[in-house]
Design a protein around this nucleic acid. Structure first.
Lengths: 180, 180
DNA sequence: ATGATTTAGTTTAGGTTTAAAGTATCTGCT
DNA sequence: AGCAGATACTTTAAACCTAAACTAAATCAT
């Protein structure tokens, strides 16, 4: 009954009259299957694209996806982001960000700058070398995404954006600990 | 210019006449932004849901998401699945499946049964204990997914399923190494 | 001011994950 | 038969990732 994307409902109990409207139980079951199906379909698309991009980043630029992702977050903020901000935006734990930042810092692509106002915190920012490296990668990366999604008609892309934005809003409204 | 979901185009070069249709360059730029935006939006929804489910599986059942996922694949195939099949379905590397299967086998939830026809291969299947444990978890898991997506109108869910199926088809048609 | 609590970040232990190399078996070809 | 290549799976090294415990600094409430 689970993780099954290709199953149809089997014959139900016979109705006394021809009934175009499903009974409550059937509708619930259908809703459940619909939610699960949606989730699994989205997951498989996401993983597929992620794997493709991971491989290309590795083979073409020798960088990992999480490192690229961290740099991408930083690129928009020349003044830098705090570790906690990075963690929230990347949707990973703080410990994880510490590790990735360590690596990138060792490679000279980012730097930690102590916050003068707060002795515990610092801003992480791209170094000039990091910015240069990222800019070159980002353009190619974007073209990969465009390529991977090019078979989807523009209107459908637009619809998907809209529907996923709606989903995102609901997800964050529901248990809105960490904002988008 | 990258990973920026909230940016609009700035003023362009002045056109000689009022022009409702965008020029080629603008349309390209827009397409690029559209594809990237779609990808990032889908990624953030997926990660959000994944994190939520991972946490609940851990706190309520003391199981990890990949282990649950492997068991979910197996549940549909009482006769078992080969390692390669699992790898393909779960969209992870073979080595990864080896590790997760080792863990689950040690916990007595799955078993490796040698394939009599092929000395290299075996079928992995749920043990009775594994089946029992999974069945209990699966129902609750499904209800979580339903809950997380319950604010999305049924029609929108249907549309999303359709559009994501289309995307999945295109993704697999494009570089169709491993089928869905 | 001083102690309790919160906050920012790190560390640790354990599990996941990949890419690449390795082992054993099978298949096809001659 | 026997060998070349393909296939099924495992191992290895390095990176990622989480949850939980930890350190240090800031804030708050007396």
């Amino acid at each position: 009954m689970h993780f099954n994307e290709n199953k149809e409902r089997a014959g139900e109990a016979p109705a006394p009259l021809p009934e175009p409207v499903l009974d409550l139980a059937s509708r619930l079951t259908q809703d459940h299957h619909q939610a699960l199906k949606l989730w699994l379909r989205m997951l498989s698309c996401t993983v597929k694209i992620e794997n493709e991009i991971r491989g290309r980043l590795r083979s073409q630029f020798g960088i990992t996806l999480p490192r690229f992702d961290l740099m991408a977050q930083l690129e928009r903020y020349p003044q830098g982001l705090r570790m906690g901000e990075l963690s929230r935006r990347m949707m990973v734990t703080g410990g994880n960000v510490t590790g990735i930042t360590d690596q990138l810092e060792q490679e000279g692509l980012v730097q930690r700058v102590p916050d003068p106002k707060d002795g515990r915190a610092f801003s992480v920012m791209l170094t000039p070398a990091g910015r240069k490296a990222f800019t070159e990668m980002a353009e190619v990366h974007e073209s990969w995404v465009v390529e991977l999604l090019q078979d989807i008609p523009g209107d459908d892309k637009g619809q998907l954006i809209e529907l996923l934005s709606e989903m995102k809003g609901h997800l964050y409204a529901r248990n809105g600990k960490d904002k988008p």
